[in-house]
Amino acid sequence: MTEQIPFDNQATDNFLEKADSLGLDNARLVEMLKTMLRIRLFEEKANELYALGKVHGTMHLSAGQEATAVGTGFAVRKGDYLINHHRGHGHFIASGADLEKMMAEFLGKDTGYCRGRGGSMHIADVTSNNLGANGIVGGSLQLAVGVGLAAKMRKEDRIVLTLFGDGASNEGIFHESLNMAKIYDLPILYICENNQYGMSASVNRVSARTPFKYRAEAYNIPGYYVDGNDVLAVYEFAKRGAEHARGGQGPFFIEFATYRYFGHSKSDRNLYRSKEEIDSWRTHRDPIIRFEGNLKDAGVIAGEEAKVMEQEVVKEIDAAVKFAEESPEPDVATLEDFVYA
């Protein structure tokens, strides 16, 4: 059964002191806020393009979960492996995605990250060690063990940032993956993004015991349950996990409690949750409003700075849309390319 247990992160009295202790200077804090804004606005634009029929198929929006994306993305290094889940736009942007190639992929264009073959659900950049979003719930958990084995065999100074959700935590592969990661002590940082619902299934209805950190502990892996809408807390624990994994101490598991504002995918009519519940998270626990407030209170940003930042991000996104719209469609004659190497 669900246990109402407190988060493992501590509330902080002094925001700046806390940030400082984590090695985050003002410029970095501002960059974190800007990245969160970039994710939110990018997704809102993508949603708009979907409504206009320009994005084909479906999309899994992560709005509301920006703190987990940015907190973890900023805690790992360039060159670390990233294995994403199907709601992974935020993680990809936090890892430094090129918005033009990303939007082009959303529009199915030949200039997109996957040359229009993957779309939002399979967006990847393997050349920079981003092994892609995954359309199969728990897909990232399968690949992570092999990437971890490779990193360990080659004695690389790289960790495997492995993202999945509450839904994947009930797949069998969750257990195979964690068990194997621990017996080989692989450098895997498991990030369980618990956004409360697997499609319509409330996490508490379909999980025999939560939080999931207990399952990590069952495999002798350190597990923590953290407020996923507090970007500083996310960063703190992700950094700790990254250091643990990088230091040869084996896998590390963090469950971030968060919430998605939009439906599971585009067919979702939100019949399984109330408008009040969604509004309550949006109003009281929104990660961007909260972090922006923190930065203002601490004097890191002032006046119109956040607005200006937003305008800059809008320009980036508009440029990405322009690039995507002006890009060519893939040539149908190339349909059978890339099946085999």
């Binding site: 092994l131 690949l143 092999g146 990437v147 490779a150 592969i173 195979e176």
Partner: peptide, 28 residues
């Protein structure tokens, strides 16, 4: 044991691990 990786009874885990390792340049 680093190159003859004995696993638990976990066929999905084994095959997924092979796919992951292959994607980052190994030849499992």
């Amino acid at each position: 044991p680093e190159r003859v990786v004995e696993t638990p009874i976990a066929e999905l885990g084994i095959t997924g691990a092979a796919a992951g390792a292959a994607m980052v340049g190994m030849r499992p």
